[in-house]
Design a protein around this nucleic acid. Sequence first.
DNA 1: TCGCAGCCGTGACATCTGTCACGCCTGGTC
DNA 2: GACCAGGCGTGACAGATGTCACGGCTGCGA
Lengths: 190, 190
Amino acid sequence: MVREALAALLGLEGDIDVVAQVARGDEVVAAAQAHEVEVALLDIEMPGLTGIEAAGLLRKARPGTKIVVLTTFGRPGYLRRAMESGADAFLVKDAPASQLAEAVRRVLRGERVIDPTLAAAALAEGANPLTSRERDVLAAAADGSANTDIGKRLHLSEGTVRNYLSAAIQKTGARNRTEAVRIAMEKGWL
Amino acid sequence: MVREALAALLGLEGDIDVVAQVARGDEVVAAAQAHEVEVALLDIEMPGLTGIEAAGLLRKARPGTKIVVLTTFGRPGYLRRAMESGADAFLVKDAPASQLAEAVRRVLRGERVIDPTLAAAALAEGANPLTSRERDVLAAAADGSANTDIGKRLHLSEGTVRNYLSAAIQKTGARNRTEAVRIAMEKGWL
DNA sequence: TCGCAGCCGTGACATCTGTCACGCCTGGTC
DNA sequence: GACCAGGCGTGACAGATGTCACGGCTGCGA
């Protein structure tokens, strides 16, 4: 519904044609190729592939296509990963609607569009301090699983899970796993 | 942005006029009165007041105004509370866009519009089994606070917090507080 | 009047979590 | 070759968490 509504919004602009819409991240590249898309507008939260993953594939498949990433959550880590995947613009959904068409026009002129507040937050935060294993364990702990369950799922001993989790708690500055998950989510580290 | 996009979508329909838009739940009633609104379209997730709370106030202030509640999350508890607050229709955002205008027309004809799958889930689930205090404590635990912190915030002893939390864990069928929070959220009990 | 549900508390207990110290192994980089 | 970060593990310990069995209080409906 939101996608169709945004399409309607863009369709009202005289200089923009919405030539294709897909509901899943893994259909993005095929649709872009079939319709010779000039600008792709990608939501991060999508079934199949995330918008960030889809951006990476699309950049490889059609380097000339401009990419605008759109998201509900203005997490610095999202911005970072989107730009690393080759996005030309990064918008949050609670920005005014006028910015959407404006961003499409600007990326077509070769500009990059980023919310300056978010850019500052992303830079101030530094890179993701979690190691790959710490991320895995923290992500597995997010749903409330106990250490032994996490260990079984990741083929680790219960003590090792505790150690990784402890490290993640330290690095996030949290006081327990629940807080660590929340903080890592907010920063886009998961 | 999403609100303006949905307004654009509805504006494309010949028989629907979008006469007002507000960004906050606590501005709904005033706007409805100022513009003699026939149908109000309310998102649940809003700053100020939730769409459900706003629906309750609007129903009291202008009983004739039809209310369509729109939400990202199809939680049975949301549906239940929305209907109790006097909503005439309940839509989830991942439904096809055509349902939106259709729902507006149908509530104007006096019909009620509810996704049958969601209605079944809400009925199958039964009422919220959590007592008021159990809800408070569970909500306070959601951000990862320790028992002592929750106790201070709610003016309870640490042992009492443990007891309520234990009861909430039993009733949700969870294995610890984190799972209990997740389950209660999914069912819309918080 | 009685019973019951809900609210608030205590105490005791087993288990889970979080921290720390320590070990081993691997694949880089200097 | 030496060093180091990261992955994986163990053992020990304090503190947090979850459960249970109690108690007292209030308000409400039978």
